[in-house]
Design a protein around this nucleic acid. Structure first.
Lengths: 192, 192
DNA sequence: TGCAATCCATACTCATGCGTATGGTACCGA
DNA sequence: TCGGTACCATACGCATGAGTATGGATTGCA
């Protein structure tokens, strides 16, 4: 509401625009990514934008690549470091369930799969995560076929949950109820 | 490519526009719903449209309500008519899995949840389906809490699958592989 | 201090897509 | 057959948002 929205009023870099783009995408979706809106939000005008990027498409591309880089590396590596394979799945489930912020961009991109630029990025990211899940299920004792199908099921449940709760506001689930849901998921999807 | 695209060249009704709108939504999403594009596709001009509808928004509203009406009534009633409660879930899973066409609109609307008009419609439809699922799980022997959570999980898996396969083209799963996945889902999500 | 390179503002053009105004044509009952 | 209603075409106005042209301001560096 005051000057805190425009901190320091310094000059901008391409990365600043990309970060702002990702924030806007997380909040309002890819369709709302307009250069003049972004410029207003950053306290400048289009003149600045078109110095850093050739086109709006170029910004989206750069923002997507930046998001793909930042990735989910730390979560994956931390899970892989756990000694007991059977303990990995519950831990993964609980972690993902309680860190909502990083998934907001993914949820927004999920709704923009008609846009040609986001499809390959989402395909790569989803593929990597699926392979990771498949590996964990394998190490937890499932056969290759079972592990793959269980990974598909788990990942679909994850994606569907994002849609149904982030964007659609289905019967606003309470915090305790959500925890119970996660534990139910673990019991149902994790090999006994 | 020829005249078969414009059949009979008769006059149009509001319902014709609504059906065309739903077809376009299923194919290209809510964002692609433009009156001039629709008019071209129907072989007329905007002049026709604005006789039947006051605005683009009104068309979307009418189309959504029409879609909600058509509903999933027959599937639900047929499943409910089955005598053995334990047999209902596998049957439901297999049916839904093999009738893709009716779910294309739902999948498209799922990507348009930022649009204020679609949210209430999707909320109602999803809510009804969730309640139906919860009931079936209850009748199959789960406790109320377990039934609700299992319904959430199942429905999330359904929604996620739509996203990952319709829109994103993840490693194009073959027909046999898909059947195996469905059976895996039944084994995993259905009470033993 | 001065001069480039970097960064940004202002003022345009242009395309798209919604909505309106108005006149024309097809169909239907009296 | 004739008038009125239902349906459609054409030609606009108008807002939005991308992209361009050009000049001004600011910074790093010699």
């Amino acid at each position: 509401m005051n000057a805190s929205a425009k901190p320091e009023r310094t000059r901008l870099s391409a990365e600043d625009w990309e970060d702002a783009a990702l924030r806007l995408i997380a909040d309002q979706g890819v369709g709302a990514l307009a250069v003049e809106a972004l410029a207003r939000q950053l306290g400048v005008t289009k003149g600045s934008f078109y110095w850093h990027f050739r086109t709006r498409e170029a910004l989206l591309q750069a923002a997507l690549e930046r998001w793909e880089q930042y990735g989910e590396k730390e979560v994956i590596s931390q899970i892989e470091a756990m000694p007991d394979p059977r303990a990995r799945l519950p831990e993964l489930f609980r972690r993902v369930a309680h860190e909502i912020a990083p998934h907001r961009v993914y949820a927004a991109l999920l709704k923009a799969l008609d846009h040609p630029q986001v499809v390959p990025v989402m395909a790569r990211v989803s593929q990597r995560r699926m392979e990771f899940l498949t590996t964990i299920y394998s190490e937890a004792g499932l056969s290759p076929d079972e592990a793959l199908n269980r990974a598909r099921l788990t990942y679909a449940a994850y994606v569907g949950f994002l849609q149904l709760n982030f964007t659609l506001g289905l019967p606003r689930i309470s915090h305790d109820e959500f925890d119970a849901y996660v534990e139910h998921m673990i019991r149902t999807l994790t090999p006994a």
